[in-house]
Amino acid sequence: MDAREDTPTAAPAPTRRRGPYRKTEARRKEIVAAALEVFSTSGYRAGSLREIGGLIGFEPSSILHHFPSKEALLEAVLEYKEDSDLQARDGRTDFAPAEIPALLLRLAELNEQVPGAISLYAIMSAESATPDHPSGEYFRVRTERTRRDFRTMFQSLADAGLLAPGVDAEYAAISTFAIWDGIQVHWLIEPDAVSVTDTLRAHLRMITRVTDI
């Protein structure tokens, strides 16, 4: 018997099939970027799939191949904004109380680099208050979660004795949230006249005892 006949034949290496996947992911990102641009200028209801496709040379049917509905595309755009906010934390969750103001300012600085996303939130949050808007539940949950997260952060500052006299965690959370959202609208209208980060920094200096902000 030929020795080669009883020598096991090596199994062929598995074929990598990542090309089509990568191409699909790239197209999804392209669609989300175009939808972000359209929704942030025209709003969700006025912005159409045809307008979105026109920016990137896609037919509406091609968009629906990647996202089953306009509502699903909206969810992807909002998730993209949420993911970009996480960059401010650099993967950390263990911030000391004195680090919290700097964390908030870093997020504000990152937001100033993506005016389209901020415009989207300003328009969509206002639209979401109308009956039966598809983002209504998202913004209701987002508002509750953000207010709760702010309250938790400022409570840790209060426990560490780092809130200014007469300021409690509830007021600090609500006022910071309101000022931040409001000043972003002013910035979108007059970007050269208003700085979100500088305004937020001044507010944090007034309501906390943290000095290096």
Rank of each mutant, 00 (worst) to 15 (best):
residue 138 Y to W: 15
residue 138 Y to S: 02
residue 138 Y to H: 13
residue 138 Y to R: 04
residue 139 F to A: 05
residue 140 R to C: 05
residue 140 R to E: 13
residue 141 V to R: 14
residue 141 V to K: 11
residue 142 R to D: 08
residue 143 T to W: 12
residue 143 T to R: 14
residue 143 T to L: 13
residue 144 E to D: 09
residue 144 E to G: 07
residue 145 R to L: 07
residue 145 R to D: 06
residue 145 R to S: 08
residue 145 R to I: 00
residue 146 T to S: 12
residue 146 T to G: 06
residue 147 R to Q: 11
residue 147 R to Y: 13
residue 148 R to L: 09
residue 148 R to M: 07
residue 148 R to V: 00
residue 149 D to R: 13
residue 149 D to P: 00
residue 151 R to L: 10
residue 151 R to E: 13
residue 151 R to S: 06
residue 151 R to I: 01
residue 152 T to W: 01
residue 152 T to M: 08
residue 152 T to C: 02
residue 152 T to G: 01
residue 152 T to Y: 04
residue 153 M to Q: 11
residue 153 M to E: 08
residue 154 F to A: 09
residue 154 F to T: 01
residue 155 Q to L: 09
residue 156 S to C: 09
residue 156 S to W: 14
residue 156 S to V: 05
residue 157 L to A: 00
residue 157 L to C: 07
residue 157 L to F: 13
residue 158 A to W: 02
residue 159 D to S: 07
residue 159 D to M: 08
residue 159 D to I: 10
residue 159 D to K: 09
residue 159 D to C: 04
residue 159 D to Y: 01
residue 160 A to H: 12
residue 160 A to L: 13
residue 160 A to N: 05
residue 160 A to V: 06
residue 160 A to D: 10
residue 160 A to P: 01
residue 161 G to I: 13
residue 161 G to T: 14
residue 162 L to I: 06
residue 162 L to S: 03
residue 164 A to G: 04
residue 164 A to Q: 12
residue 165 P to H: 11
residue 165 P to R: 11
residue 166 G to Q: 12
residue 166 G to C: 04
residue 168 D to K: 05
residue 168 D to C: 04
residue 168 D to P: 02
residue 168 D to F: 00
residue 168 D to S: 10
residue 169 A to G: 11
residue 169 A to K: 09
residue 169 A to Y: 04
residue 170 E to K: 10
residue 171 Y to K: 05
residue 172 A to E: 04
residue 172 A to N: 02
residue 172 A to W: 05
residue 173 A to I: 02
residue 173 A to G: 09
residue 174 I to T: 09
residue 174 I to V: 13
residue 174 I to E: 15
residue 176 T to W: 00
residue 176 T to Q: 03
residue 176 T to E: 03
residue 177 F to I: 02
residue 178 A to W: 00
residue 178 A to R: 03
residue 179 I to D: 10
residue 179 I to H: 15
residue 179 I to L: 15
residue 180 W to G: 15
residue 181 D to F: 08
residue 181 D to S: 14
residue 182 G to A: 14
residue 183 I to K: 03
residue 183 I to E: 01
residue 184 Q to T: 05
residue 185 V to G: 02
residue 185 V to N: 01
residue 186 H to M: 12
residue 186 H to T: 06
residue 186 H to W: 15
residue 187 W to N: 00
residue 187 W to G: 01
residue 188 L to E: 07
residue 188 L to I: 12
residue 188 L to Y: 07
residue 190 E to S: 14
residue 190 E to V: 02
residue 191 P to W: 14
residue 191 P to E: 06
residue 192 D to R: 06
residue 194 V to G: 01
residue 194 V to P: 00
residue 195 S to C: 05
residue 196 V to E: 03
residue 196 V to W: 13
residue 196 V to T: 10
